[in-house]
Simulated scan of single mutants.
Amino acid sequence: MDFLLGLTILFIKIAVTLSGLLLAASYLVWLERKLLARLQIRLGPNRAGIFGLLQPIADAVKLLTKEDIVPAAADGVIFRLAPAVVAVTAMLMFAAVPLGPDVRVFGRAVPMVITDLNVGLLFVFALSSLGVYGVALGGWASNSKFALLGGIRGAAQMISYELALGLSLVPVVMLAGSFSLTAIVDAQAGVPFIVLQPVSFAIFVIGAMAESKRIPFDLPEAENELGAGFHTEYSGMRFGLFFLGEYVHIQVLGALTAIFFLGGWRGPWLPPVVWLMLKIVMVAVIMIWIRGTLPRLRYDQLMALGWKVLIPVSLVNIVVTGAFIQFAM
């Protein structure tokens, strides 16, 4: 009986999480279009529904009914599977993200997370690393020089910025004493880590934007150089899957920013889940604002920032944090 109850609760958590992710991703696109329109003195989506609120549904219908074209010279199998790799890995990352403290259901404590791994941070980074395979394989399988260049750029960008991203979280792990995302949130019961680790926070946010290929780091799909980059040859729902993966990734990175530096679900008065959602939206709005403000970097500037600035600063921050912990003991 306990096994069936546990299995039922697990399926409910998976269904609710996936539904929420997909719905939030579609309306994150609407939010981005509206905010960018305000920044550029435009109206944005305003035809489908009040304030354009039905625009995400109209976009989904368009993508689902649009013809799916596969170039004659493309590697058909890899070309078809690459978008799914990007979308699926982004959604799987949310499996280790805690949405709140444990709740009691039928007298038993149920974690507000699909799976509370004691190596949750490593799990998230492993899936984040796998996501770039979809970009690289999609560019290569398209048999287009522009798509291939976009895929190569995506892989090189991921290597440089994921290294800085991982190093920025070493001080967080040192302070929390655990790789578990739940334990990291619990360690911020007194003071959020953004106060103790502002340098790590800045490096993490920059690396997260580069990981999600957002302006000013969208070199893998720079339209003035590569057409549309790694997804130049894609159409229909496969094109939509790349963007689904991008906007789910934004949500995951927003959740991780909240968990590592903003106290996770912690906050006064409101329910824990609401606090986490507000923090995710706040991070997403900041990323959209930066997109509408900054120009795109040159590729050499992009790589130099990762290798020559962020990684050395991360290493120095680790040494300083270690010295602080040692003298504080």
Results as ranks from 00 to 15, higher is better:
92 L>P: 02
88 V>H: 04
73 A>N: 15
227 G>N: 10
174 M>A: 12
303 M>Y: 09
277 M>E: 11
173 V>E: 08
247 Y>W: 13
163 L>R: 02
198 P>N: 10
145 K>Y: 14
154 G>W: 09
97 V>K: 07
273 V>M: 14
182 T>N: 03
129 S>N: 15
14 I>R: 04
69 I>Y: 10
103 V>Y: 03
124 V>A: 13
280 I>M: 08
212 S>Y: 00
298 R>W: 09
217 F>R: 04
91 M>L: 14
110 V>H: 03
259 I>G: 00
141 A>F: 06
281 V>A: 09
182 T>R: 09
236 G>Q: 00
183 A>G: 08
250 I>G: 01
312 P>S: 03
54 L>Q: 04
150 G>D: 05
247 Y>L: 05
300 D>R: 07
217 F>L: 14
94 F>E: 00
307 W>N: 02
259 I>W: 00
39 L>A: 08
310 L>I: 12
180 S>Q: 03
249 H>S: 11
142 S>I: 04
80 R>H: 10
230 F>I: 07
225 E>V: 15
275 W>H: 10
5 L>A: 08
223 E>G: 14
93 M>Q: 06
56 P>E: 03
207 G>Y: 04
282 M>P: 01
292 G>S: 14
305 L>R: 10
148 L>C: 05
187 A>G: 04
96 A>N: 00
281 V>K: 04
212 S>K: 06
233 E>G: 02
34 K>H: 08
285 V>I: 11
51 F>Y: 04
196 L>E: 10
63 L>R: 06
107 G>D: 07
132 V>S: 07
233 E>F: 09
258 A>Q: 02
217 F>Q: 05
176 A>V: 06
